[in-house]
Design a protein around this nucleic acid. Structure first.
Lengths: 202, 202
DNA sequence: ACATGAATTAAACAAATGATTAATAAAAAA
DNA sequence: TTTTTTATTAATCATTTGTTTAATTCATGT
């Protein structure tokens, strides 16, 4: 079996992703990427035509991977709402601990270029997911407090993701190392589902 | 009475703040700022010595203003915890509606330069505020569920601020205009305190 | 009115940056 | 092997960008 992607092409993409995540699009230069990936500067344009094109490919792939993992949990037919809450709290936090710069990067670059999100097929799927349906079912049954599902979904995501975006602040005011911070986030994995349930239960 | 700040100095700062918020530090050029503020390019260096210095002044002032407003609510001796929740939900949402790019800007630039936050005197004050004390009192009385105050504070801020950072996504999946989005956020002003109370109440 | 210092301007500079070119090396096809 | 295509390199180009300079205008105090 032969590899479709050349070695250098992957090296460029890996280095570029790492740099874009760390410094953002504008602060990352093509020479940065060339140095980090240890390739000749011209190879970037040879494989990707332009810095912008390279960025867009990385942005798309990153978004796609992220959203796929989300929809996976939200649309599982076998799990209950409470199980889903536990699962997504755990999965997302693990995910972000593994790539802590991702949320800020995505939301920041999205602000400048919302079109790239429009292209994502999985985007709108969240509101029609099994997760939302189960919540609305619970509302009908009188178990859960009624609120527009968008608020419910937003709240869950807020409580999971936002702390990571604040990590420099939290680490500063609590005198935490990066390791300590991750321990704190790991503790949240169990706390969040309980909070959310408590929040919506009648 | 004479003005300490020259007209052009203010014009530069206003334009620079607007551009830095919109595009970030790196994507904003000194010529952008000169054009936007309708001043000669050299005036930027004349008044602020460098783009970086100008940025740091704006960053400091913006952070200071933001944090001052926060501490103001958190440390009010006259209000109860529940009143504080209502007040800060209302005040912060109004604040961010007035300047919606602020949270993403602050958190994003902070990531690259956490030192600027260290300089803020008000930073650590949050954890020693009356707000936190009142929560811990409630825990002692057995009214509230016990949890590390940092989680409590983080949750409140998450639910208030994060939706704004997601505004492009929310607007896309819900087909909202900017006006619609603001209406949604205005509705949250009343919902959030109820959610938080519900979340911590035994 | 005049002199002094501050404010403003156009022009220029040096470094950085995204991209291209032309030559060379490596790999694949013939 | 020879030919042809693909990959890689160093050098270069044209802009852009942050900053400075030197000349000019404006304001203020005398």
């Amino acid at each position: 079996m032969k590899n479709n992607y050349s070695d250098t092409e992957i090296k460029i993409k890996d280095a570029a992703k790492s740099l874009f995540l760390k410094k953002g699009y504008s602060a990352t230069t093509t020479r940065d990427i060339a140095r980090e990936s240890d390739i000749n500067l011209a190879m970037l344009n040879y494989y990707f035509r332009s810095k912008r094109k390279l960025f867009e490919i990385i942005m798309f792939e990153t978004l796609y991977e992220f959203l796929s993992k989300m929809v996976e949990v939200y649309n599982d037919e076998k799990t209950s709402l409470e199980q889903k809450l536990k699962l997504c709290s755990e999965k997302y936090i693990d995910m972000i601990i593994a790539e802590p710069l991702l949320p800020t990067f995505v939301l920041n670059e999205l602000k400048n270029n919302p079109t790239s999100f429009l292209k994502m097929p999985t985007t709108k799927m969240i509101m029609t997911s099994n997760f939302v349906a189960q919540y609305q079912e619970g509302v009908k049954k009188g178990i859960y407090i009624k609120v527009d599902p968008i608020h419910f979904v937003t709240n869950v995501l807020s409580i999971i993701v936002f702390p990571f975006m604040c990590s420099p602040i939290i680490m500063k005011i609590e005198n935490l190392s990066k390791k300590d911070f991750n321990i704190m986030m790991t503790k949240r994995k169990k706390l969040i589902p309980a909070w959310i349930i408590q929040m919506i239960k009648k």
